[in-house]
């Protein structure tokens, strides 16, 4: 099990009902973790519409999770 902190923003924050949580996961990658959380919490965005960041930097979906990582899933952006 890997212990990670997940921060939620925008639609994911509302659907999770939390801004962040620390959890343990068996998912090896960020995409695996998203699918796990999506199944658990009913996130409406499919994994291919969400980007990921670890420790405040963008990472690919194949990024391997490490103990203590801070993970953010990024819904489609809409600044400006």
């Amino acid at each position: 099990m890997t212990r990670v902190n997940v921060q939620y923003f925008a639609i994911l924050r509302e659907q999770r009902g939390l801004t962040s949580e620390t959890l343990e996961t068996n998912a090896p990658t960020v995409s695996g973790l998203y699918e796990e959380l999506r199944a658990r919490h009913g996130f409406t965005l499919p994994g291919n519409r969400v980007r990921a960041a670890v420790n405040d930097a963008f990472v690919p979906q194949s990024h391997v999770l490490r103990e203590g990582d801070r993970v953010v899933f990024i819904p489609p952006v809409a600044g400006g």
């Binding site: 923003f9 925008a10 639609i11 409406t44 965005l45 960041a53 953010v72 990024i74 819904p75 489609p76 952006v77 809409a78 600044g79 400006g80």
Partner: peptide, 23 residues
């Protein structure tokens, strides 16, 4: 900036409904 920054906007409509744009 519009394409890349992790920033989101939620529209609040006159009807009272809301929506996260692009989501």
């Amino acid at each position: 900036a519009k394409a890349r920054l992790p920033i989101w906007k939620k529209e609040h409509y006159a009807s009272g409904a809301t929506a996260w744009i692009n989501c």
